[in-house]
Design a protein around this nucleic acid. Structure first.
Lengths: 257, 257
DNA sequence: CAACTCACTTTCATTCAATGAAAGGACCGC
DNA sequence: GCGGTCCTTTCATTGAATGAAAGTGAGTTG
C-alpha cells in the first residue's frame, strides 16, 4: 500500500519545496539530494524535477546534477525590478565616485537582502552577494533599514537571537536599540569588522517620506580604509536622494510594461 | 458537472503556466489576467496563486495585483550564477575603461539572453535589459554567438524568419551566413542601427576552446560614436580573455558552494 | 566477469488532493 | 439601488498524483 501522504499535501507545495532546496547549500544538487531536502519520495521528486527541467526552471549540468535554470532566472528578473532598475545607474555612479564596492539592500524579515551590487576586479571585500542575505544587526545597510522601522519592529528584532559572526558584532539588545536611535538621528550607519574581520561599511537610507526607508545604500571598504569612510558620506547621501526621486518618478509614471 | 480537464493536466504545468504569465507583458498582473494567460479557471488560478504568494514566489502590490516575489528572485539568482559572478568584475572594468554600456549575453534558442549589464546614469542606449532577449541576427552579441556555432545551427537559424526591427537589419539569409563567416574570421561582430535607430554595437566571444563561445561580450554606443567603436576592440578582447580564464578557474576549482 | 552497490528511472493499482460550477462578497460608477 | 467587474469560498465529483516495487545501467569489487 502507498505510504500515508503527509502534511503539506498540495502539489504546489512540493514544487516549491524543490525550489527551496536551491535556496541554501551548493548550487547544484543530485536528484536524491533534492528529494531528501524537499521531503519527497524519489519517484515523486523524479517526476516533478523532470517537469521543471523540461520547462526550464531547472537544468542539468554535464554531470547530471540539477541547477536552477535560465528560464526561471529570466522570469524571476522581474522580481524587484522596479527598484533595481531605477537604482542601478546611480549605484554605478556611486561606485565610479568612490571606487568602493557599492550595494543596495532591502529588509526581508530579520535579514538584509542584497538587491544589487557594483564592484570591480580591484578591491573586493566579499561578504554580501546579490541575492544573498546577512543579519540586520551586523551590517550597515541592515542597521539603517532597522533604524527606520517602527519601534515595535526594532524591539521584536532584538528580542530574537543576535548572532555574532565576529567578536566585534554588537549583540547587546539595549545598547543596540540606542545605536539605532543614533543612526536615525544622524542619518547613517557604520560597521567595523562586525560581519567579517578586515571589512567595514557605511550606509544611508533611500527614503520615501521622512520616516520610511524603502532600501539602504551602502559601501564596503577594507578596514585599512576605515578612516576615509566619512568622506564618502556626501556621495552616499546624494546618490540615495537621486535613487529616491527615480523611484518616485517610476511610481508616478505607473507600472513599467 | 466540472468541465473536462484539458491537456497539460499536471499541477506542475499549471504552476509553471502561472510563472510563464510573467515572462512577457506588464510586470504586474491581476488574478483574472493570470488565469487567462495560463489557461486556468478563476478558482484554480486563485488557489495556486495564493499558494505561490504565501511562499513568496509571487507578491501583491498595493493595488492587489500580483508580481514576481523576492523569494523567487532570490532562488533564481543561482541560475547562471557561475558565469555571471565570474564575469561581473571584468564587465565592470570594461565599463570603466570605455564608459559605454557593457553587456554579457548567452544564446537561448533563436535569441540572445542578456545575463548582465553595466551602465551609468550618463549614456544609456536602452535596447537590452538584464533578463531580456533580442533576436540573434539583429545584435552584435547575437551574431558572435551564432558565428561560433556549428554550420547546421546557423543554417537552421536562417531557415527561420529573420525579423527586421529597423530598415537596416540584415535579413538576407545568404549574405547573413557570409557575414557570420567574416565575423568568426575577424573575431568580432558589429551592428549599426539594426536593433533600434540611434544605437550601434560591437561584440566579441568569450571562448572556451578555439571554436566554442560560452558567451558574448558587447558594447552599445550611440550611433554618433560609431566611428570610435573599433577603438574599443582591444579592451573588449582583453576583458573577454580575462573572463574566459576566470570561468576556467571556476570550472577547475569545482562547483561553487 | 559475475556479484554487488549506488543512483536513477519506469510501471501501475490505489486514493485523496485538485478541480470548476455555482454562489457569495467587495467595490466600483451611475 | 443596480449592473458591472473582479475576487473569494464552498463542495461533490473524479482523475491526476502517489509510492511500492521492479527495472536499468554505470561503476566498483572480489
Amino acid at each position: 500500500m502507498p505510504r500515508q501522504r503527509l502534511a503539506g499535501q498540495s502539489v504546489t507545495s512540493r514544487v516549491l519545496a524543490i525550489l527551496a532546496a536551491f535556496e541554501v547549500g551548493p548550487s547544484s544538487l543530485s536528484l536524491t539530494q533534492i528529494a531528501e531536502s524537499a521531503g519527497l519520495s524519489l519517484p515523486t521528486a523524479h517526476r516533478l524535477v523532470n517537469e521543471l527541467t523540461e520547462w526550464g526552471a531547472l537544468q542539468r549540468d554535464p554531470t547530471g546534477r540539477y541547477q536552477v535554470g535560465l528560464r526561471l532566472w529570466e522570469v524571476a528578473q522581474h522580481g524587484g525590478r522596479q527598484l533595481r532598475e531605477a537604482a542601478r545607474p546611480y549605484l554605478q555612479d556611486l561606485f565610479s565616485l568612490t571606487q568602493e564596492t557599492s550595494h543596495l539592500a532591502v529588509r526581508e524579515g530579520r535579514e538584509a537582502l542584497y538587491i544589487d551590487r557594483v564592484y570591480s576586479s580591484k578591491r573586493v571585500p566579499r561578504a554580501s552577494r546579490v541575492g544573498g542575505r546577512l543579519p540586520l544587526h551586523a551590517t550597515a545597510v541592515g542597521k539603517v533599514l532597522l533604524a527606520y522601522e517602527e519601534r515595535w519592529v526594532q524591539e521584536a528584532y532584538v528580542a530574537g537571537p543576535l548572532e555574532a559572526p565576529t567578536a566585534r558584532t554588537h549583540v547587546h539588545p539595549g545598547r543596540f536599540l540606542e545605536e539605532l536611535d543614533r543612526i536615525k538621528e544622524q542619518g547613517h550607519a557604520t560597521t567595523f569588522e562586525e560581519v567579517r574581520p578586515g571589512a567595514c561599511s557605511i550606509a544611508v537610507p533611500v527614503l520615501k517620506g521622512p520616516d520610511t526607508a524603502v532600501a539602504a545604500l551602502g559601501l564596503s571598504l577594507l578596514s585599512a580604509q576605515a578612516a576615509q569612510m566619512a568622506r564618502h558620506l556626501p556621495a552616499l547621501q546624494g546618490v540615495a536622494g537621486r535613487i529616491a526621486s527615480a523611484i518616485d518618478r517610476r511610481w508616478i509614471t505607473g507600472v513599467v510594461p
